[in-house]
Design a protein around this nucleic acid. Structure first.
Lengths: 262, 262
DNA sequence: ATCGCAAAGTTGGGGCTCCAACGCTCATCG
DNA sequence: CGATGAGCGTTGGAGCCCCAACTTTGCGAT
């Protein structure tokens, strides 16, 4: 069935065909954008509340008089924007966006796991495990710790979980001579360094957003399209960096807050 | 790891064609993912440096023995991740990612435009303009300022530009009676409030990452797939919030840094 | 040696179709 | 009355094709 190809009515110039027909024209060039914009508007202005079903591909083609490709493309764009989420066999729905749990970075500053402490203070059960191993600094970390690239460091990787689900990854780098040897020593970085005659005076954090690396996406069980917040934290003793770590958290579930007294 | 799925023998029977042929098979479920993962790996490990050309659709179909749809889909995914960028008529290229300019949020705390001050201290020319208008608080801002929803506020929208290009959007909300009436008053929020007998004691910032709203994407001239960093900043006088603003910056060009003394 | 132009290649918008895995609903059977 | 299963609808992967707008390249003419 379906022999030869039909003319394929106007891919580009559908000038003469129909009068505007749909409310305000807008005539925005790509057809799928008309669909995207219309649905996006309905989501942001609340016409379609979280959980509401989005018309299916078939329905969209009818409603907006577009081909299946366009309908499909529109849905994919909205999904990659995180506005809707598709469930196979069921349909697309307006994404319930979990409200962003605040992480109060300035409290619990010297705590074995400030992250866990903060969440626990919010009544969540947080567990974590870690793994330490000796490494060489390498270019990036060497620059951050102002050490030669071949410096002997201890790298500790942490995985934090809330009620089983992974919430945060952290990787800490510190000169090997400072590394903790017991669980007790691990408790406080500041106390540990103090025992070596080093007084930590300042903690600097640098926050940026990026696409998760595949391993992170995997470890944090991230949905497609969600970014991560990457916090580079460095402990300083005067003008000397003594420890640095990379903290990675799902961008769709957390916000980090900082308080600065005047 | 490795969640693993089912066999998935070629959907539309070209089953018998050729033997695996390509290095380690991996057989990861969707075909397009094989392409995505391979290219992503090459980009992240530096095999494909920034600016390097990505094989075209046609070349990908040959190289990976996939259909055009899959090749296309792979490229779209990589583009929406911000790893590559497509130029019509030319090809796809590994995205040059501008290194992240740090914004030192704790310096210049009470400056008319801490943002501009920071960048100017880095030797950039920053200009900005603003527009004020009276508004009602509305649910969100009312909560942030702990005021009734119908409170009379002044909203000021700022657009900051560096060498002409837009870099940051900011929207500030403050009770109408505190709003500046002259350029001079605008200079310092803290001084202005002090004139009303209010002593700002603390600035709290909450950082999260999200997809830009269309208007923001437009105003900041964002490429597809880049997120924004959204900073909610509130000035507090004791336990009373006196001003709050939303600061939006391109997530692919900036990082925000905070310093916390111990 | 340089200019101009045509051919070839590439992206991005669209179109159509097939199919597997899965969800939902409803009627039928025990 | 409750469980079960068939059928329909929906997503998502995949394939193929057409075309407009644009870049790049290489060739031939000046």
């Amino acid at each position: 069935m379906t022999v030869g190809y039909l003319p394929n009515t106007a891919t580009w110039g559908n000038a003469s065909h129909e009068p505007p027909r749909d409310g305000l024209v807008a005539t925005s060039d790509p057809v799928y954008l008309r669909v995207v914009e219309d649905i996006r508007r309905q989501i942001t202005d609340g016409t379609l509340p979280p959980g509401a079903p989005i018309p299916s591909r078939a329905q969209l083609t009818r409603k907006y008089q577009v081909g299946e490709t366009a309908a499909r493309h529109a849905l994919r764009v909205l999904a990659s924007e995180g506005l809707i989420i598709g469930r196979v066999g069921s349909g697309h729905y307006v994404r319930e966006r979990p409200d962003l749990t605040p992480l109060h970075r300035w409290r619990f500053l010297d705590h074995p796991a400030s992250f866990a402490a903060d969440l626990q203070s919010q009544g969540r059960r947080v567990t974590w495990d870690w793994h330490s191993e000796p490494v060489e600094a390498g270019p990036t970390i060497a620059r951050r710790l102002r050490l030669p690239e071949s410096s002997a460091l201890t790298r500790t990787r942490y995985v934090y979980r809330g009620d089983g689900k992974p919430l945060q990854l952290a990787t800490s780098f510190e000169p090997r001579e400072f590394a903790p040897h017991s669980d007790d020593e691990r408790r406080s970085l500041v106390a540990r360094l103090y025992a070596h005659g080093i007084k930590v005076t300042e903690v600097v954090e640098s926050v940026h957003s990026r696409v998760p690396r595949p391993a992170e996406s995997d470890a944090l069980q991230l949905a497609a399209g969600v970014h991560v917040l990457h916090i580079e934290r460095t402990h300083w003793a005067g003008d000397r960096p003594v420890e640095t770590s990379d903290i990675v958290i799902p961008g769709d579930r957390f916000r980090v807050t900082y308080s600065m007294p005047l």
